[in-house]
Amino acid sequence: MSDLPPEKTHSDGAATAVLSVTDLVVELPLGLQRKVHAVSGVSFEIGRDETLGLVGESGCGKSTLAKALVRLVSPLSGKVLLSGQDVTRARGKALRSLRRNAQLIFQDPISSLNPRRTVLASLLETMSIWSTGDSDRAVRLLEQVGLDPSLVANRLPTQLSGGQCQRVSVARALSLSPSLLICDEPVSALDVSVQAQILNLLQDIREHHKLATLFISHDLSVVRNISNRIAVMYMGKLCELGSANEVYYRPLHPYTRLLLDSVPGLRSAGTGEPHAAGAPSAVNAPSAINPPTGCRFHTRCPFADDICSLQAPPMLEITPGHAAACHHPLT
């Protein structure tokens, strides 16, 4: 990995990174020569047995990044290495086997399941494409994600609840024993107990199968629980990357701080009063079509000054293993 930029934070086993992403850029066309700068130069890596949490506000590019990693959208530039193999250049058979190795659980599980296949058929189909189809294993997977196989195995996706669909997607992704699992909001529709069951399962699998995981969620407490490290994304760029505790307790980037400060608690129970952060703020609306110059967060940042609007801050390691892209990091 010698060609990585020196300021990048490395995971513990940098040499054994399962996924290594360098300067990834994805632009999505909107017609009329307009385009969304969805991912603008993102670099990170994930080691074996490591979970990297990815957080950031809606529309910042998390799902696009996830899809680019398995080439469901094509990056404009940059490099994605999966177990050392270049995903961005793979074709045909090589691409298919890379895709098998990197499973993506979509954000929208209900629409991502084939509406005409029963749960069991859909699992078996996924598995048998790779000639490992085995209904015992399919049944076991359903049990592991907290579903009763005798109840759901023969149902169609439309006959399941939202959370049940979400769990079927998890089972399907795990059925291929991938080396990289990309989870896009995998537990967002689940009640706490079932959520905990899935998170525990993912932890177990990570430990036993040395699985690398990219875990996308807007829920900071979930991300902190499941992740070894956390990456924070703002308008297509990473703005902070560090160990879960560091990012959580000692955020360096003002945007991370803002995210953490707006987590609602159980404390406001029953007051009927909306959370303070709910009052619409007089925010300049930055757009991913015309992203702000310099630091993309400067239009909303309380600490911004001239340099912030002129120069994009590079990602720098500020304390060991904890990096931020900010001209005025918090201390």
């Binding site: 957080v55 954000q107 529709a189 807007h218 909306p274 952060a277 709910g278």
Partner: peptide, 22 residues
């Protein structure tokens, strides 16, 4: 409203909840 804020980050979720309250 069936799970209307599941894929929203806290800031926007708070805004939606505020909207419902209003």
């Amino acid at each position: 409203a069936d799970e209307p804020t599941t894929s929203l980050d806290v800031t926007i979720q708070a805004q939606i909840l505020y909207l419902l309250g209003t």
